[in-house]
Design a protein around this nucleic acid. Sequence first.
DNA 1: TATACAGCTTCCAGTTAGGGCAAAGTCAAG
DNA 2: CTTGACTTTGCCCTAACTGGAAGCTGTATA
Lengths: 265, 265
Amino acid sequence: MLTIGEFSKISKVSPKTLRYYGEIGLLKPGFVSKDSGYRYYEVSQLRDMLLISRLKQYGFSLPEIATVLASGDNQHLAELIRVKKEELLRQIQNQQHIQLQMEHDIQRIERGENIMQSNYLVKTVQVEPKCIYSLRRKMSVRDFGEMFGTLCAGLEKKGLNPTGPFLSIYHDEEFNRECTDIEVGIEVAVDKGEHIRTLSPGLCCFATHVGSYDDFTACYTALMEWIEQEGYTVSGPPFELYVKGCEENVQPSEYVTEIYFPIRK
Amino acid sequence: MLTIGEFSKISKVSPKTLRYYGEIGLLKPGFVSKDSGYRYYEVSQLRDMLLISRLKQYGFSLPEIATVLASGDNQHLAELIRVKKEELLRQIQNQQHIQLQMEHDIQRIERGENIMQSNYLVKTVQVEPKCIYSLRRKMSVRDFGEMFGTLCAGLEKKGLNPTGPFLSIYHDEEFNRECTDIEVGIEVAVDKGEHIRTLSPGLCCFATHVGSYDDFTACYTALMEWIEQEGYTVSGPPFELYVKGCEENVQPSEYVTEIYFPIRK
DNA sequence: TATACAGCTTCCAGTTAGGGCAAAGTCAAG
DNA sequence: CTTGACTTTGCCCTAACTGGAAGCTGTATA
């Protein structure tokens, strides 16, 4: 039998932790003195302790380890390790991706750009299909604001309730200020009717732009760079969500827009 | 100004978290109503929030982020990100190493070997130099026990106090049962004298073997495999530390031995 | 045998970065 | 005025421990 200190030194696990493991029932000492309350461990328990340490390293939680120890089913354990291994793989991939972002940021800072000033955090998201009431037309960017007026009028005439912010979809590959195929719309609850359709872009990457609509380009650039860097391709027309915009009496510097690109690998 | 809910939706950070950040002084709302206690955020604070999210992703703790926000020193931030990047790199390397171990374990289990039965957790450690009183000789393994007797006699004659367990060092490249160059010793406090020398193996990997001395081979094999797998080479004679052994009246199944290999890349 | 001291015990509190839930107060639309 | 969505504070909870205090035990030494 070993005292908790001896067991600790051999197993490289602190006495504190050993007491904790006893408390939660993960590894109870082989014998506890009735008089003194001293814990004594069997040497054979070192094996259990080593397995615990190893599984912990593999990313198992303590309750998970407890069930593994209790079952003693090795084939099942192999499967569980495989699952953890795949989880770890995903983690590593994610971390490698973060490393690229870090390098990107470092270089931006070293080029003298202020990371706080144009800080687009590109994220991916699975966009749920939404029903939109929309108008699509080839037009000049100058007629853009007018389209929203038409849209609002149409909404009112039909008695529709918007259930989301305004949005616009850019159907042209290349953006042309004078004549672009733009669809402006808004999310609604009903799913049938004239000018009503379902928008289901699927997997998207997006970034949030704060400020006037003049400098969207930086955000678009950031998104396009990200898409290229991550090895995705654009799988549909990009769209903008006017989360906070001109319909209220808000300063242009306070506008909030989310820019989305549907993507696939 | 945005309510906490609006700010939350745009920044993709939960209201709870925003309140928490306000509480710890990381990001306080631009305005708090005196009547209702409602928090209102400036749109410009979204930038700060995005930076916080990003640095969090990079592995910064919240206090670290707070100092970054407070200082506004971008050059310094670049350095800090670089440090975190290296930290992440080390983490990734460690995780890749763990992945190899996992695969190894899975295969062991699938070959029907019991992971609990021969579970050597190989670790690396920088072994501090220690003074040992030792005897070195070419001998048969059968004379091994006798050597410890001689060693004990020598200790007693010199009036030396052991400050660690017995150990033995295997100076031959290839282990030969009949005639091996073995040094047996024990750690002592004094650093000068006949048969006293300093053992400074430096970086070692080691594993703990529990049980009789008969099946050390599995442990040695595990260590050698590990060394090969990790791309290390052996840089000195291996040694064994008899953490719990035959000097007490202990069953062979209770012996505890640590086996060390000095290594370098 | 007395004592010193290392080692052991329990109990309580704290760590990170928030999540859950409840009761009560507030805002804006109809 | 009411309704319903939103927000507030407050309290407890998480995982896997670590730290510290106060007191008890085991063993080596004088």
